[in-house]
């Protein structure tokens, strides 16, 4: 299969890596390892919930996260998988009015729940005010974290309005204000590798009608 001009050096980097990995895997197996018993079929379950106002019913492997049910089963790929461990916030969606990490929640936990994803907040022709503000204030570069940022930002304004306290409040019995410090603290669960943070805070301030 090798081209005549390249002789024995014509081995792709990928082929080398694949064979290297196979060798490593084989040598890691002790001689006395028994073949694992054939796994039984993973458990599945039916689950129904509402996504962006529409009823959906799925039968899922119980291991399916809410995130994977949205992306892989309902093809709502606006919600992103970043770390898949609740550390980055890219998967943030709004469930029963509260933002959560959809990667740290099983789909079967959400029977009867109302889920809102970025697709449910606005459409290209009819942007949610927060989406429009992200455009106006350059609240993103690559855009990967943006759906999670926007779902979080919309919820943060509601949380401040509802008087949910935060770490940066001096008087925790008082109502929190729509300040730049509050936005930044409350958005700390959404990581942006492009570093659009200051513009995100400005977009949020614009929607809140306050000055950052």
């Amino acid at each position: 299969m090798s081209a005549p001009s390249h002789s024995s050096l014509d081995i792709s980097r990928r082929a080398v890596m694949v064979s290297g990995a196979a060798t490593a895997a084989m040598s890691a197996l002790p001689a006395d390892v028994q073949a694992a018993p054939a796994p039984s079929k993973p458990a599945t379950m039916p689950v129904s919930f509402k996504v962006n106002g529409k009823d959906v019913s799925l039968t899922l492997d119980t291991r399916t996260t809410l995130l994977d049910s949205l992306r892989e089963h309902l093809k709502l790929t606006g919600t992103k998988k970043g770390c898949d461990h609740g550390q980055c916030g890219a998967c943030t969606v709004i469930v029963n009015g509260e933002r959560i990490n959809s990667c740290l929640s099983l789909a079967v936990q959400h029977q009867g729940d109302e889920v809102t994803t970025i697709e449910g907040l606005g459409t290209p022709d009819d942007l949610h005010p927060m989406q429009a503000a992200f455009v106006t204030y350059d609240g993103y570069q690559c855009g990967y974290c943006t759906p999670g940022q926007i779902c979080s930002a919309v919820s943060v304004l509601k949380e401040i309005e509802a008087g949910i306290p935060s770490h940066v409040q001096e008087d925790i019995t008082a109502a929190p204000a729509f300040t730049n410090m509050e936005m930044r603290e409350r958005m700390s669960g959404n990581i942006c590798r492009c570093g659009a943070y200051s513009n995100i805070a400005e977009a949020m301030a614009a929607v809140a009608g306050a000055k950052a």
Binding site: E98, V156, E159, I172
Partner: peptide, 11 residues
């Protein structure tokens, strides 16, 4: 409120 993130505290 010194722990975790808003999303995690909600769940």
């Amino acid at each position: 409120v010194a722990g975790a993130s808003g999303q995690l505290r909600n769940k």
